[in-house]
């Protein structure tokens, strides 16, 4: 039985589509930057992306933004298809985990993911000196042939727990903050432990605006979206 249920809440009313979370994620997790040509061929890598939707007709047009990243499904379609158990469910962290050094690059997980949030390394990223100095030493450097995805900044979760253990105390709400949450200027992203009755995410849920992506598929995502705009939230 896991002690934590890491949960993210995305308030679409607050998201301005500024992409700060995307940049922070690239920096924190050593996500390589693909060239224009590679992106054209569908080989871009973004653990987190902002999907943009236009609403209405000109001149009355509105842009809607939706940050999409790994939904950390409770019943993940990516897990049972991996032949080498590189994509597996961590009972301890209650997260989908990708073990890079186990991955053999079949890409089954990416093809089975309904959210399209798993990315494949078509080449080993190269950094001209001194850019290699900005790589985060707490996160593996993935080479070609390896699948990768958002981890909810597992390195920060582990570090927070190790620090809490050394201080002989329990993890508290706010100890863990993924990079995207840390930089979000409008506070649209909230992260916390849903099993902690005092945490911020627990207090925000249930919410009349809440929904999950492709909820009907039974993937049980750990990411809650709060509807934005003038969307009718029903009775």
């Amino acid at each position: 039985m896991a002690e934590h249920k890491w949960t993210m809440i995305v308030d679409l009313d607050k998201c301005t589509g500024c992409n700060a979370c995307v940049v922070a994620c690239h920096a924190e997790n050593n996500v390589p930057v693909a060239s224009e040509d590679e992106v054209k061929r569908g080989r871009g890598l973004h653990w987190m992306r902002i999907e943009r939707y236009w609403e209405g007709e000109y001149p009355d047009v509105k842009a809607r933004f939706m940050p999409v990243f790994c939904q950390q499904c409770g019943n993940a379609p990516c897990e049972p298809v991996c032949p080498v158990y590189a994509s597996y469910h961590s009972e301890q962290e209650n997260l989908n985990v990708q073990v890079y050094n186990r991955c053999i690059g079949t890409r089954y997980c990416g093809n089975n993911c309904p959210y399209r949030v798993r990315y494949f390394n078509y080449r080993t990223p190269e950094y001209d000196a001194p850019l290699e100095q900005q790589l985060n030493p707490d996160v593996s450097y993935r080479s070609a042939g390896v699948m990768e995805k958002c981890t909810f900044c597992i390195q920060r979760i582990r570090r927070a727990r190790e620090t809490a253990n050394a201080d002989n105390r329990e993890l508290q709400d706010g100890d863990v903050q993924p990079a995207c949450v840390q930089v979000c200027p409008s506070g649209a992203l909230v992260f916390g432990d849903k099993y902690d009755h005092e945490s911020r995410v627990t207090n925000m849920l249930p919410n009349e605006r809440q929904f999950k992506l492709l909820e009907h598929m039974g993937t049980e995502p750990a990411v809650y979206y709060l509807k934005g705009g003038e969307t009718d939230v029903g009775d």
């Binding site: 009972e91 301890q92 962290e93 997260l95 073990v99 186990r102 996160v139 593996s140 390195q155 582990r158």
Partner: peptide, 12 residues
């Protein structure tokens, strides 16, 4: 033991 057998304890 169960917690210490998790892959993410050492690989991330």
């Amino acid at each position: 033991k169960d917690a210490l057998y998790d892959c993410v304890v050492c690989h991330r």
